[in-house]
């Protein structure tokens, strides 16, 4: 078994995945994520971005193919070990900010640190620091329901960053936002990741978002493609038949 290159923090080889109902997910994806880079995984909806991220982060068991993290295999780990790996080394941002509604904002952001056994004071300081940096520091004591959507998403980013993960997986973190909020969220995310040397794997179907990344991996139908050649959109086909001018 060949060891991955030294500067690749995360590395996948010929990753195949099919969903539980048998529908195809990934078909032989190989990629390497370098230390400290921001890698965009782009592609249209349904191209397997989320599945790839879930496989890389150990949310889904990998049965066919290999995933290596820091020169140790992830695909051979059991569910408990993968859970510990996620808790200690990975961060995850959902498309929707799923915050715990009962906790206030800073407690939400401090939760991963507390889950790792950090003291309450230390967790709070780190969480407040990140909330400040992401411009939601004023709302640190309010409940998630009192915040706007973009603010909640920034809190979710703070929660993912607060425990200093090695790799941050962001699955379409800006999909439900307007463009102003989207740019703000992305800028804060990328700036924070770069300043702390956090590797980011960013799934997006948006070319503008992908432009912020160091490198882009394009997916199409569960395969990695280098140049996307989609068939021309059938914009004229059938239009004459439906035309009312007849």
């Amino acid at each position: 078994m060949e060891a991955p290159p030294d500067n690749d923090v995360l590395w996948a080889r010929s990753l195949h995945f099919s969903h539980r109902d048998g529908s195809p997910g990934l078909a032989g994806i190989s990629l390497g994520v370098r230390q400290g880079e921001i890698l965009a995984v782009s592609g249209p909806r349904g191209s397997g971005k989320t599945t790839l991220l879930r496989c890389l982060s150990g949310l889904e068991p990998v049965r066919c193919g290999e995933v290596w993290f820091n020169s140790s295999p992830v695909h051979t780990l059991g569910p408990m070990a993968r859970e510990r790996l996620r808790r200690d080394r990975f961060g995850w941002i959902d498309p929707e900010p799923f915050l715990v509604p009962e906790l206030n904002v800073w407690e939400n952001a401090a939760l991963p640190l507390m889950l790792r056994g950090a003291g309450r004071r230390r967790a709070k300081v780190a969480a407040l620091e990140w909330l400040e940096r992401l411009d939601v520091g004023e709302k640190a004591r309010s409940r998630p329901r009192d915040l706007q959507h973009a603010e909640r998403q920034r809190v979710a980013i703070a929660r993912a960053l607060a425990h200093g993960p090695t790799v941050l997986f962001a699955d379409e973190p800006t999909a439900p936002l307007h463009r102003a909020d989207r740019a703000h969220v992305l800028r804060t995310l990328t700036a924070a990741a770069r300043s702390h040397g956090i590797t980011v794997v960013l799934a997006t179907h948006d070319a503008e978002t992908a432009a912020l990344a160091d490198r882009t991996v394009a997916l199409l139908d569960g395969r990695r493609v280098h140049t996307v050649h989609l068939p021309d959109s059938p914009d004229t086909e059938g239009r004459a038949a439906c035309s009312l001018s007849a």
């Binding site: 859970e83 996620r86 808790r87 799923f98 915050l99 991963p112 889950l115 929660r159």
Partner: peptide
Amino acid sequence: ETVAALLRLGAPAGM
């Protein structure tokens, strides 16, 4: 839903 999000964060199910 919240519990699922917590599990994605890596919260131990035992906890």
